[in-house]
């Protein structure tokens, strides 16, 4: 198991190095620092002021020196300052993680519980019109872009029904629920359709196995069969789905945060893209890649928790 872990970590490290190399090529070789300078200082700044900015940010140094610095800083988690407003990037990430998690975690939990419950429900009533109706709704739901849910939600819930604010965010704990209600609703519902279809398939496959028939023959009730046997034995695909989704919870949602004005990490990414703030963008992409790799490895290890028969080779 240790050898497996070391091997996976080594592969992960190589991937990280590759990601960092790509980031440097994209953001600091291809991109022109004058553009970044102009965005930071302003359109009317004279060429001399732009040159001062470029010098101060080290973009006038030889590319090899910049590359070495880039690798060293990223691998030691020294993220430096934003090209746009010169604020420490680590601080911006810390500030953004809270607002992202405050809506992604409840949204993910609600979405997951809803999807599992609905899947068990339709799997239990499989081939009935309930199954077919809910599946049809699920297919329709997953076919529609999340953008439509966002704009439709803002229009219907925020503007017509007046239930929640159309957009905005306030860190005051008393006001947070009001602001995250609609983003949570949309984030959780937007993914339910696909999850219901996937989990339903998993559950139905398990329901056709011999041990389920045996359990029923021994007199186990429907609830016990579905929750104790079918659900438990379907944990590996569920865990895979859950653990691989966790990095995205940290990094927020680009569209939802942008449209709802939530100052999370998704908004950090969008702002960095729009402002050509490559120093921030590389950190966001790098952390995204790191989290993804780490949680992929974690997923492998959680299999042993879900199924003791799984062994690492």
């Amino acid at each position: 198991m240790l050898a497996y872990a070391v091997r996976r970590l080594a592969y992960g490290f190589l991937v990280v190095l590759g990601v960092l190399g790509l980031l440097f090529a994209l953001f600091f070789v291809y991109a022109d620092p004058h553009d970044m300078a102009r965005r930071a200082v302003g359109e009317k700044a004279s060429p001399g002021v732009l040159d001062d900015w470029i010098k101060q940010h080290g973009y006038d140094r030889p590319k090899l020196e910049q590359l070495r610095d880039h690798y060293w800083k990223m691998l030691t988690f020294d993220f430096g300052r934003s090209d746009l407003d010169d604020v420490p990037i680590a601080r911006r990430l810390r500030e953004g993680a809270g607002p992202s998690l405050v809506f992604t975690v409840p949204a993910f939990a609600i979405g997951l519980l809803l999807a599992i419950q609905l899947s068990l429900f339709v799997a239990y009533f499989r081939d009935s019109y309930i199954d077919r109706t809910i599946l049809l709704i699920a297919v329709l739901e997953m076919s529609v872009s999340i953008l439509l849910y966002i704009i439709g939600g803002q229009f219907l819930i925020g503007k017509i029904l007046n239930w929640f604010p159309i957009s905005g965010f306030d860190p005051d704990p008393a006001l947070i629920p009001r602001f995250i209600a609609m983003p949570v609703l949309i984030y959780s519902l937007a993914g339910v359709g696909g999850d219901v279809r996937f989990y339903r398939t998993v559950f139905i496959e398990e329901m056709n196995r011999d041990y389920v028939r045996t359990a029923r023959a021994k007199g186990a009730g429907d609830g016990r069969v579905m929750l104790r046997h079918v659900l438990r034995n379907s944990m590996i695909p569920i865990l895979t789905n859950v653990v691989t989704a966790i990095p995205f919870l940290f990094m927020g949602s680009l569209l939802i945060e942008s449209f709802f004005g939530i100052p999370g990490l998704g908004a950090v990414t969008v702002d960095a893209v729009q402002a050509n703030d490559f120093s921030t963008l590389r950190v966001v992409v790098y952390i995204d890649a790191l989290l993804f790799i780490v949680f992929q490895i974690v997923t492998d290890f959680t299999y042993t928790l879900a199924d003791p028969r799984v062994r690492f080779e």
Partner: peptide
């Protein structure tokens, strides 16, 4: 009890 007001 909901409100669409963004302010306290």
């Amino acid at each position: 009890a909901c409100s669409n007001s963004p302010y306290p």
